[in-house]
Design a protein around this nucleic acid. Structure first.
Length: 394
DNA sequence: AACACGGGGGC
DNA sequence: GCCCCAGTGTT
């Protein structure tokens, strides 16, 4: 156990007092509703409060109950999550809502085994739901809590290590005052968010500064100790903004991403990989780049005439840095439905091979011609949202 | 244990 | 431009 008894009692007591005085009025704190708390905790994973608030309101309005969420089209759930990132959270959340309907009659369970069995609910969220919604004395250790505890107790273990989190959970559990798990866990995270911040912590306003070992050692700025993440690897993409003609005038070609992996089942502009920054230095010149893109589009069933480079866009994920060069195309002829409504296996194989040869990766994409209004119903990652909003002029 | 998985905010 | 994240699932 870290710290002596007085140090731990002081911490918990002063922290609770501070929380009563300083807690923010957040939407999910209005009522102690397990569904609201669950939604908020999933949204708050790797995401700041200010970002989450508008999403939380829209989500609860669109899916007021677990039954509504379980019954909704996945497309609607993703659309509600659009721009929030880590979209597997949304897909897992809906899968978990179905679990709750089937196993628990539509009521959020209140035991550790049942809560942690829900899709998308790991050790942190299990503790958060059990403590915040049901006042159970379970630790809820996130990045904030690890920062606060590492400073107050001067813990120099690497917080990126699994063993360190386990240690923090044991410590956090010991600190929970009798009957106060809900407020105490929220207080711990609130302190990390408002006072014990990653950079320039506001120690002079901190309720536990007097006994903070990190502060007393002058070590608060270098804690917590955390090993560095790998930098994102660069990827270069030739991207097509294809404008329809004739019956498809005013529409743009988009496709749906595969069921798994990056941005699963989100919509995007068609793009193919390139070896370097397109249009620069070692990158493919615009002419050949557009030729390759045109070949890939034709193989996907959309013959199109290149209309020049439109813009460059960059987007950084946690592990990939995308460099996109977007080219405008005019569709030569509208996509036609095959006779009889079907496509022969041979034709599919031929198209797939041609698309692959042209640098395409996903040969099973669903393509669609959309208007600006159609964007209200389809979920796009931010980088394509920016491009399309710029194009449609909104 | 390492990696995949988005995005925004602070400085 | 670089750093920080209110984590979970897969391999």
């Amino acid at each position: 156990m870290r710290g002596n008894r007085e140090t731990r009692i002081f911490f918990s007591t002063e922290l609770l007092g501070w929380y009563e005085r300083s807690k923010r009025d957040l939407p999910w704190r209005r009522h102690r509703d397990p569904y609201n708390i669950w939604i908020s905790e999933i949204m708050l994973q790797q995401t700041r409060v200010d970002t989450v608030i508008p999403y939380f309101h829209r989500f609860i309005e669109r899916f007021p109950t677990i039954a509504d969420l379980a019954a909704a089209p996945e497309e609607d759930v993703l659309k509600c999550w659009e721009g929030l990132g880590y979209y597997s959270r949304a897909r897992n959340l809906q899968a978990a809502a179905k679990q709750v309907m089937e196993r628990h009659g539509g009521t959020v369970p209140n035991t550790k085994a049942e809560v942690s069995a829900l899709k998308g609910v790991g050790p942190y969220t299990t503790g958060a739901i059990l403590s915040i919604a049901f006042n159970r004395p379970e630790p809820a250790v996130d990045g904030n809590v690890m920062r606060v505890l590492s400073r107050y107790f001067l813990i120099e273990e690497d917080v990126a290590k699994v063993g360190t989190r386990t240690l923090m959970e044991e410590l956090a559990a010991e600190l929970i005052p009798e009957g106060r798990a809900s407020d105490f866990n929220q207080a711990l995270m609130e302190l990390g968010a408002l006072v014990c911040t990653p950079k320039s912590p506001q120690c002079l306003t901190c309720p536990v500064m007097a006994r903070c070992a990190g502060r007393l050692e002058g070590a608060e700025e270098r804690l917590p100790i955390k090993s560095k993440a790998k930098p994102p690897r660069p990827e270069y993409r030739l991207t097509a903004l294809v404008e329809g003609g004739g019956a498809l005038a005013g529409r743009v070609l988009v496709r749906r991403r595969p069921d798994t992996g990056l941005l699963a089942r989100m919509w995007e502009l068609p793009h193919i990989p390139a070896d370097a920054v397109p249009g620069e230095g070692a990158g493919l010149p615009d002419g050949p780049a557009m030729d390759r893109l045109a070949t890939a589009l034709a193989a996907a069933g959309v013959p199109a005439r290149p209309g020049g480079a439109l813009l460059n866009a960059e987007h950084t994920f946690s592990h990939i840095h995308w460099n996109l060069r977007v080219f405008r195309f005019d569709a030569e002829i509208p996509m036609q439905a095959p006779a009889g409504g079907g496509v022969s296996p041979a034709a599919v194989a031929e198209t797939a091979a041609a698309y692959d040869a042209a640098g395409g990766e996903d040969t099973t994409s669903e393509y669609r011609w959309i208007t600006r209004e159609d964007m209200d119903n389809l979920a796009f990652p931010n980088v394509f949202l920016r491009i399309l909003n710029g194009y449609f002029g909104s």
